[in-house]
Write a protein that binds this DNA or RNA. Structure first.
Lengths: 164, 164
DNA sequence: ATAATTGAGTTCTATTTTGGAACTCATTAT
DNA sequence: ATAATGAGTTCCAAAATAGAACTCAATTAT
């Protein structure tokens, strides 16, 4: 497997790695959600090199998470905004932030918070099933290979399949 | 910011990038959740080089997501299993898989599914607030800098702050 | 009128990471 | 005695990243 072009992979997680599978991209998205839109602001806030930032923004645009739009002419300047696809990434950020806060402890206080627009309270993100409302985690959900052959291939070496 | 040691960052998302901020680590975790435990199985299933795999497993172990435990002696052999911290990563995988499935379309059929142990039905992961049950997404949640100065610094260049 | 600044990149070289293949080492199977 | 397993390690080439400097158009400051 090559570093490039995970975009053809059957596994959605692998395709996602083609977009956010590096040190910076998720942090760029974080900045987007904080309201940052311009090249130099991303660059200064993140400390990323201009070279890489340009590359990553191009990728996020080509993958449909950001769109580049002019905010002035003379001189022509563009800003980067989240598209619907980019905005829909918010739950992933919420889940990951929640995991990291609990599992990668730090002395430092959180530099930001996720707040409900309605209640104005800090939220605690939990993943649930749309249909049943049941909480989804390693105790309640099983990851099963679609191909029974693949399941067998794994099971051959395992007492039983699942998130033990 | 250096490529290494995001572990001291104040932002939990940045610290998370120190663990899963590369092409492979999340895919290794996917394999863990599918039930894979041994070095050669990860290697063959992912097509990752043995070199990098060893490196990544070492990191996942040192960050507390996996533990290495002997499954036989003579010759001594180890397997890698999810720790509690690793298992708690499941919701992140669910959210990301859901996002990618909708936003990075593919011809290929999904190679696996997330199934409720209880209902045995395929789940649809939604992020909600533990307290209110409210669905959390870009429409309902706001990301706010903890430091009011930081908020102002961003707002200076923006009509208004928030996930617009 | 000339010089400095802003904003958004691009180019260049030096380091680091990654990819790929081959090699090790202890034990077991043939 | 020879080959195969399992879990790595070592080595070299290729690709990605870091860091700094450079471009270019237009605008503001002197």
């Amino acid at each position: 497997m090559k570093w490039h072009d995970l975009s053809e992979e059957a596994c959605p997680l692998a395709r996602a790695m083609g977009v956010v599978g590096d040190r910076w991209t998720l942090l760029i998205l974080r900045e987007c959600f904080l309201g940052v839109r311009r090249f130099d602001h991303y660059q200064k806030r993140l400390g990323i090199t201009r070279h890489l930032l340009a590359e990553r923004l191009k990728r996020l645009e080509s993958m449909g998470l950001l769109e580049k739009r002019p905010y002035q002419e003379r001189p022509l300047r563009h800003e980067y905004r989240l598209t619907m696809s980019g905005k829909e990434f918010a739950p992933v950020l919420l889940a990951m932030q929640h995991w990291a806060q609990r599992n990668l402890p730090s002395e430092e206080p959180m530099p930001f918070a996720f707040v409900s627009r309605e209640s104005e309270k800090v939220v605690e993100p939990v993943v649930t099933d749309r249909d049943s409302g049941e909480e989804l985690n390693h105790r309640t959900v099983l990851m099963v290979p679609a191909d029974p052959e693949a399941a067998k291939a794994i099971a051959k070496h395992l007492p039983q399949l699942g998130w033990k």
